[in-house]
Design a protein around this nucleic acid. Sequence first.
DNA 1: GACTCTATCTCGGTA
DNA 2: TACCGAGGTAGAGTC
Lengths: 221, 221
Amino acid sequence: MSVRLVIARCSVDYAGRLTAHLPEATRLIMVKADGCVAIHADGGAYKPLNWMNAPNTLTDHGDHWTVVSPKGEKLTIHLHEVITEVGHELGEDPGLTKDGVEAHLQELLAAAPEAIEQGLTLVRREYPTAIGPVDLLCRDTAGHVVAIEIKRRGEIDGVEQLTRYIERLKLDSSLGEIRGMLVAQSIKPQARVLAEDRGFRWVEVDYDELRGLAPDDLRLF
Amino acid sequence: MSVRLVIARCSVDYAGRLTAHLPEATRLIMVKADGCVAIHADGGAYKPLNWMNAPNTLTDHGDHWTVVSPKGEKLTIHLHEVITEVGHELGEDPGLTKDGVEAHLQELLAAAPEAIEQGLTLVRREYPTAIGPVDLLCRDTAGHVVAIEIKRRGEIDGVEQLTRYIERLKLDSSLGEIRGMLVAQSIKPQARVLAEDRGFRWVEVDYDELRGLAPDDLRLF
DNA sequence: GACTCTATCTCGGTA
DNA sequence: TACCGAGGTAGAGTC
């Protein structure tokens, strides 16, 4: 139970969600403790050429390995020549802490909707609709409902998403008058234009400034 | 110029599109020939905890490495104890051949549009518009144009794409009446709702069945 | 270089 | 479990 690294001349066949074949070449085979397998070439970023996610059953047949998943996927690795093999126990990983993702931005804005527009009050975060949840549902000083789509980066698909929600929310006559708003740390010119075309306000917010406004418990990431 | 594998107790900091931190633990550090770096734990599929895509400048400061990209991203790896280190030249990879991706589904459906709807005939594959090509343009038994968006998995994005194409095609009055259709191996409930809202038919097709219908030259993948 | 779209996407959250 | 949305999406193709 550990990470196992094999450098070998090998050819590989995958049959599962699609079928794929790798001709013979020297590659790195990585097998992790959970049974996942990845075949790496010397390039192409972190993505392997072929892989199988855990859980798997790996069987060593000498000249070839078979990796079979319960979902019926199968990877066959033909080993023509093993060049190096190392392994080591890594143990449990304490895990990654992240800061600056969309969820944090949403938390901060839910706690301080005033930062988006003067007088705005929160009705609900993740307001559910049949086509997905609206990030923030608010009410403005005139008492109108405001649907808010939050993005780290405001692009066209954010405006499309907001359009879908508004379209859907308008089917519910009990909500009364509704308007849409796109809020992001930065908004691309194309997205600004499209938002305006659709009658939505857009607002850029400063993440660090928001953290300053937020109550202490949201500042301790 | 080769893949380099280091197993070490390390802690890692990333500052770039977001900020992230990994506390001290034993991990695998992989450096490929192109300069990309990946930090792996012993689990979690093929995705590393942290990474830097090529191109990068990697500097070894003894007790820590810094990896800097031209875009201003920075990864710092503090090495507390190096346990194992191996490397090997892998050489150029001949590359992966695939079968069963969206392009194949499109070929099969172009050859057998009847599988989508009775009486449908192909006008053109990859019908060009100013905002990108429509997967299939067909004509139905009533003589109306049908724009078809093909996906392996039908999700909301596919409906949005189809919406844009239809909007665009309607500007060309020479085409006459136009309707849209979403065709996929499976279609998610939200995508079905949105497609119906927009007045599009959606159809699920079976890939293996289609291969059976297709002429021999399309079956020899 | 910017834009568009696919992906064996992966990953986390939730009903 | 399936579904849904975010992602440091990555990567390929096109313009």
